[in-house]
Amino acid sequence: MRSDAPRAPWGLKLAAGAGLVFMIAPLLLIFVYAFTTEERTYQWPPPGFTLQWFGVTWGRTDVWQALTLSVQVATISTAIALVLGTLCAAAVSGSKFFGREVISLLVILPIALPGIITGIALRSAFGMTDIPFSFWTIVVGHATFCVVTVYNNAVARFRRTSGSLIEASMDLGADQFQTFRYVILPNIGTALLAGGMLAFALSFDEVIVTTFTAGQQQTLPLWMLEELVRPRQRPVTNVVAVVVVLVTTIPILLAFYLTRDGDQIAGSGK
């Protein structure tokens, strides 16, 4: 018998370790920079450490406005993506019809195509139809590419929620709506939540499509981009970067734990 976890060759360990360091160290570096006393350059090592930039950032109304807008856009886009993604997943798994590959392709397309193409396409469409750029044009763009995360999570769970569960529910006297409420929803709920978290993270971070679908509005990523191209107050940017990392990390961690639990629930039925 082979032991469960054979020893890895040291060369492999070294290569994998170096790869992980390459992935994670730059993010940690940002945390260090958030505390630097240096204002005008990216000097390393930092000449000193201070907490003052957190206070300064806290007082910046432009940051707050951008953050608020990003949260609003992400919330509404996620809500729309939840509805559209669940509908697609239910339709695709509920029956076999000729167009299911087309539906999957349609859902994946906005994220598979380079963001700039989606952005310009929507921008010129808004232009042609004389729709003024607003909060809602941003939401339209975001919801379009957020559907995929909800859809993927929901479809995977629908697949594991076996058809006989739905038949069992109807057999025991539940009509289609009761079956949805008492059997389907509890079984796909965590998957939807996880998909929604990922959609939120995706929308909160999106910059390319937003560049083309926003008018005067500035989401947090647009604010960041502005700072990257024309830095104004570098320490504030450092603090915002840390906040963005934290805000996107939390939904990812939650989504991870949700789907992990979900797998245990789904697996217990077997």
Binding site: S164, L165, E167, A168, D171, L172, N187, I265
Partner: peptide, 27 residues
């Protein structure tokens, strides 16, 4: 099926994984 007074024992049992035994039976 939900209007027929006919019930089925499924080959894979089709027990609801999110409900405990008593809630499955009382469904």
């Amino acid at each position: 099926p939900y209007k027929r007074n006919v019930n089925t024992v499924f080959q894979d049992y089709a027990l609801f994984p999110h409900l405990n035994v008593i809630d499955n039976v009382a469904y």
